[in-house]
Amino acid sequence: MNPTASPTTSRSLAMKRIRPGRIVIWTILFIGGLLMVTPLLFMFSTSFKTAAQVYDLRLIPAAPTLDNYIRVLSDGRFLRWFLNSSFIAITVTLSNVFFDSLVGYTLAKFRFRGRYLIFIAILSTLMIPTEMLVIPWYLMSANLGWLDSYWGIMFPGMMTAFGTFLMKQFFETIPDDFLEAARIDGLNEFTIWWRVAMPLVTPALSALAIFTFLGNWTAFFWPLIVTTSQELYTLPIGLSSFAVEQAIQWEMIMTGAALATLPTLLVFLLLQRYIVRGVMLAGLKG
């Protein structure tokens, strides 16, 4: 505490600290946090338990074991699914970062007839729930021979209306002077976008990349519908197949889930400031 603070200031600070409203808020936040973290902790805890210990609800296992991890990792399918998920999430993320920002930039920085109409058309697709789109996607995939293929899993997400909207809003904040200076310096329009505009919207790009990666890493509904062969399963589909394969092996499911969660946790821990900023930018509830 500042030793020069007046008694009144000290008292008001103390009052602020113990205000009942704040106690209520902190308590609610604590309980909320606990509710969020508990399943995660149990997932990790169960992954270190034997089948006999699964229903022992102690958080720290009586006899922790790495057997589950050895079994899961030595099962070639898990690695395959992990690689599938990685390939799909990274490809879709790169595609979104490229195409969403390219379209967003064009809509934000070029004046042409129909620009507003195109933007509204793109935006209006946000109003359609995924469940309604799945049937046309499936029919399209069936007609074009994309069922049970990587492309079939990826194509609906290669470009998104949300990403285009986010990037457009961000590109609009770049002063035209930057782009005009580059035009005078002799850069072509593509290079201006790539070398000048893109580095100026890094926060939005990071947010878009994180959301897209996490969304695709955890995607379940569409990959479940479009894939039939185990070799093309993504991690969430593969893990769900664990559950129904034989008797339910919770310790194996939790081990797989824990391994699947690691990249997500890593992305969040490393890039959390971008995620928070991204949530603020996108006006999402998080």
Binding site: P175, F178, I184
Partner: peptide, 15 residues
């Protein structure tokens, strides 16, 4: 095009 005019420009916002 601006680039083929062989001119250079300095902007109000520096750019």
């Amino acid at each position: 095009d601006p680039k083929t005019r062989n001119i250079a420009m300095v902007f109000q916002n520096y750019a």
